[in-house]
Design a protein around this nucleic acid. Structure first.
Lengths: 353, 353
DNA sequence: TTGAAAGCGATACCAC
DNA sequence: GTGGTATCGCTTTCAA
């Protein structure tokens, strides 16, 4: 079946049509639509009726051009099929819907050819989620107000990675583990050209914070970190596989692993299983992120959950406050939560033989 | 830290600035920018230099207002954290980037409060992905040109669900299975108000097509479908769990399952494992969709893969052709591909005792 | 090939 | 309270 392009769309109804029909000026219609200055109830009703009758809807472009505010927010993310991004987005969407704002999403991939200026000019504010290292976002192309989640901006929302690591370690220590290995994530870089001092806040990157949490936990528990107990990964499954092989090949291998990302943790778990180990009986594993696959795996992966949806909601709230001209305060790092599943248990030697 | 709202943004450079700097009229600048009528090379270069020097970028709103075309496409989907949607989106993004178009995404949730008119007026065309049953999309709010993936439009791209089901069944039959159970998906409905006849094409919904593929495969293999071998699910994990319990409780339970969705298939697999069955030794399972979790599960799930990225790319191609005023032909249903993993094997009785 | 002028649809400022 | 009118940045139509 072939579809031929349709001719130009019919002209839509404008504010003038409404004004004419209601017998008032366009100004009055505008005022009614925007609920601005006080309009006499009878006049207002007349305008409302005219709007209803004509099916009038404001033209966002014209409004934006004329300097008016749109109840529209844009989200900018590297990709949308990243679990991290979609979680934040989910929260953002809910908040936006609740507060009567619309949300549009743009992706900035590696090449960043995207002309962000479209949305940036049309929307009142932008939420940056985990902008990738490659696709640099220039300040110039962003709306006036920007809030970021896991990315740089004047208002960077961050998760308490250090605290999350401490939670994970506390769980393993409480179970009685003393030989705990660690697999790190990737060190991140800064992105926004023209970084503000605030951007540094974000630069305390996740990987380092989690590593610090591991080291502090071990130290506070009076435990040494044996040679080779800290392996470096890149958040991808494969690196978890490599890391666990190295860890298990150690003369005194760990009885538990704290892995900085779920994908790596699952990779590690599968390799351990392939090597004949039982999880959690022979090896406990804790992940980080609580991706969907963490709950779907067998055994279910104990992992540190980030309040991503909540962060998304908060970001949108802040954005709207900013747009409304209210001062906004950056909240402290968001606390994590430990999702305890089946991949953790006491170490082998503490159980009855 | 508190951030105070910044004062109105500095005025940006307009076409007038460029014209003045280049010593030409705005018309000429416009022509250069849009590559329209022939402009004398020297003049063109002068304008280009001025653009470069000033950092000028066209204001999409003004352009849209004035009736010009934007190289902008919008994608409309119910949610973004659905694997199906993000796969299609991925392909669409790539194609758009390759062809020099921008893509913005809007979600229409259950409530559909979103004012789609923003993007629909700004963008040249829209790609509808799996619009939900609840959030009805009114034609009025869509751009002139619409292509859909798994949804209604004049140009609905569909996957060959029937063929996919046949592939899955063929795989199981070739392994020697004769007792094959089926778990169906959910029957879908039509959405677009004011449905065109073409929309009917899409109305041959996935669930029915897969079921038909199952029945035909059995019939063609000369096999009966015993009572209770067809269970009905809703694509969610839980329904797969319920279905497999019913299936395994049958007097002569199946040795293989063809499940219409990966989430259900995984639910079924886990229940079977909990009941002490080994997959695939005691029970083979084939899914449909090839979600990320299908590859991540243990054992890996054999499943029917849909060419979602490819469909996304095709959709964007078509959209752009349409925008360019070229006639477009609806391609036939997209063929699926079987991803063979570890969840399928010959039935128990055919292996050496 | 280039330019001047008239909108596109809405808002804002300032009179009435 | 309500209504002119200039203006936003760009494209289009029609002359030059």
């Amino acid at each position: 079946m072939t579809v031929n392009p349709t001719p130009p769309a019919p002209t839509s109804v404008t504010i003038n049509d409404v004004a004419r029909r209601a017998g008032v000026s366009v100004m009055t219609v505008s005022n009614v639509v925007n609920g601005k200055t006080s309009v006499r109830p009878t006049t207002r009703q007349r305008v409302l009726d005219a709007i209803e009758a004509t099916g009038y809807r404001v033209n966002p472009m014209a409004r934006a051009l004329a300097g008016g505010r749109n109840r529209l927010l844009s989200v900018i993310a590297p990709q949308l099929n990243l679990p991290y991004v979609s979680e934040v987005l989910q929260g953002a969407t809910q908040a936006a819907e609740r507060l009567g704002y619309d949300l549009v999403v743009m992706m900035i991939g590696e090449r960043n050819t995207s002309d962000l200026s479209v949305m940036s000019r049309l929307s009142a504010g932008a939420l940056l989620i985990q902008p990738s290292r490659r696709g640099r976002v220039r300040r110039l192309h962003l709306p006036q107000h920007v809030v970021s989640v896991d990315g740089p901006s004047d208002l960077p929302l961050v998760v308490d990675n250090y605290g999350g690591a401490r939670q994970a370690m506390q769980h393993l220590l409480a179970l009685g583990h003393t030989r705990i290995g660690f697999v790190s994530g990737l060190h991140s870089e800064n992105i926004l050209s023209g970084d503000t001092p605030e951007a540094q806040l974000w630069d305390r990157d996740d990987a380092s914070e989690r590593l610090r949490g591991y080291h502090d936990s071990m130290a506070l528990a009076g435990l040494d970190v044996p040679q080779g107990y800290v392996q470096h990964g890149d958040y991808l499954k494969e690196s978890g596989e490599v890391a666990v092989r190295a860890l298990l090949a150690l003369p005194r291998p760990p009885t538990a692993l704290f892995v900085s990302g779920d994908a790596m943790a699952l990779g590690a778990m599968h390799v351990a299983q392939d090597l004949g180990l039982h999880v959690p009986q022979d090896l406990s594993i804790v992940g980080f992120d609580d991706l969907p696959i963490a709950a779907a795996s067998r055994p279910g992966l104990t992992t540190v959950r980030q309040p991503l949806q909540h962060m998304g909601e908060t970001a949108v709230q802040m954005l709207i406050d900013l747009v409304d001209g209210q001062p906004v305060t950056l909240p402290p790092p968001f606390p994590t939560e430990l999702a305890v599943r089946e991949s953790t248990a006491p170490p082998p030697h503490t159980r009855p033989a």
